[in-house]
Every structure is written in structure tokens, then in C-alpha cells.
Design a protein around this nucleic acid. Sequence first.
DNA 1: GCGTCCAGGTCTACC
DNA 2: GGTAGACCTGGACGC
Length: 296
Amino acid sequence: MPAEVLITKPASFSFGHTIRSHGWYDLAPFELDEEQGRLIYVFGGQNGYGPATAELSEDEKSIRIQIHSPDFDVKEIASSVRHILRLDDDFEAFYLKTKASGSLSWVSQRNAGRLLRSPTVFEDAVKTLCTTNCSWSLTKKMVSNLVEKLGERAADGRRAFPTPVAMAAVDEKFYRDEIRAGYRSPYFVELAQAVVGGELDPEQWLTSGLSTPELKKEIKKVKGFGDYAAENLLKLLGRYDGLALDSWLRSRFYEQHNKSRVCPDKKIERHYRSYAEWKGLAIWCDMTEKWFDEKP
DNA sequence: GCGTCCAGGTCTACC
DNA sequence: GGTAGACCTGGACGC
């Protein structure tokens, strides 16, 4: 029998909207069980414990965590679940703006807006790099390869996301040949080695006192992070000032708000200007509303 | 099955 | 600061 932990749900929280908020649920070691409405994740080993697979689901008042492992750090896993589901983030100011907007009033009605994230900023950074300049199928392949070839195995045979140490231990050739990361390969080596060597601490970005533009500059110092990747990572850190425009978001905007005609990014920026520091989340909710009609 | 073309975001060199 | 070309992969397409 798996061990079970319950976490009380915040008042304005939607489990379904959070786990399907963006593509992360589709990237290993996340797995979405659509039929049962469960999110599965393999938490990395910590504090002397090995990796542990956990299934997250919900009932009326709680989030249920079922842990399939002979030994695990229950506090660490519960704390990571709070982090990945953003249970402690405050969206009241965003909901006030969306309520006033009319077109985005559904966001507060459905308690949407929480973007699923990984337990560590390092994992989110690596996955963001895997989304740059390629199709979603290639992103999935690169992330699966990383987990399969470098991740530590949990008791049930699934694997956790690789640690910075594991990623720093292999060379550029490995990333090219085994991960199929192509020209991104040296970026992974550089990122992992900088974290292991202590020159870079991505986890510190969560609590950084820097302004968002300053933090974006810091993130862009990491090879492979341009405007899109930096702004995407900032969203996962909880800073929504940037739109993180990629080709998909642009084409959805043209279709929805510009009669399918291409327009400059500045026009997109103007469209969401009233959301101020929330505009990155506003565009994401605006462009993905239909996802939740398709996936009730 | 093979070859060609294209999309995708960032980097570097150059203006 | 802006721009062009290179980077690399997988998918689509034509043969």
C-alpha cells in the first residue's frame, strides 16, 4: 500500500487547471493520467532518501499524495508539491484585473492561472532550453532522453529528473549523440557545470531581490537563454511581466485578435498593457482558454 | 528508402 | 541597436 499525505486546498485553486496549465505535464518525469485525473511525478532523492514516485489527485477539500516508495522524506515531498502546484502563490490581484477585463473573467471563475512547475528551478531551466528552436515532439524526446539516460531510478522503475551533478558528469558528445540535443549540447554542459561548481545558483532566483528586468539580464547570461527562454523561466519563477512570445503564442494571437494577420510584437504588448505586471499570465490564459473546453 | 526543404529560438559577427 | 547567417533536429513532402 502506498503512503498517503493530504494537503488542504487553498480557497481559489483548481487542480485540473493547474496540472494542465501548460505542456510541462507532458514532459518526464511528469505523467498525466487523464482517465483518473492524476498527475504522476518522480521526486528526486534527497536527505539520504532515494527517488520516490508520487501520484497527485484531489478530493473535495484536499490534494492527495500517494507515495510509492519504501522510504522517502515526507516533508520534502509535501513541500515540493506545494511548490509545483503553487499552493502558496497569491493570485488575488490578477483575478481582480481579469474580472474587470470581461474577456478573461473566466480565469477567476475557474480559479485558473497557476502554471505547473518543476520542484527545482534547475529542472525548469533545462526543460526551457529543450523548448527552444524545435518542435514539441523534439522537446519531449530530449527531456525523455535526459531522464532515461541520466535520471536515478525509483523503486517502481520510473526515473527522476537528473541532478546537476549527473548532468555535469557527461560531455558535449553525450548530449549530441544520446540526448539528441544538437547545438544545445554545450549549453547543457555549461549550465550543469556552473551549478555544480557554485558559480550559478538558479534556485536563488526564486527569492531574488532583483527587479524583473535585472533578473532577466542575469538569466540571459546563461548560454541558450534569449528573450523567449528567459521570460518563460521568469513566468515559472512567478514573475509575469514578460510575454515570452514564441511562434505558437504569436500565431495564436494573430488568429484570435488580428484576423490571422502577422503584426509586430509591440502590438501584442499593447493589447495586454492593462494587465501590467501580470501581462505574461494574461496572454497565456487568453491563448489557452480553449484547452480546457477540449479537456474538461 | 532517400534527398530536400522548412520551422523553430539563440548566438556570433558584422554594420 | 539592428540584422544576417549558422546552428541542429524531426517532420513533411516529392521522387
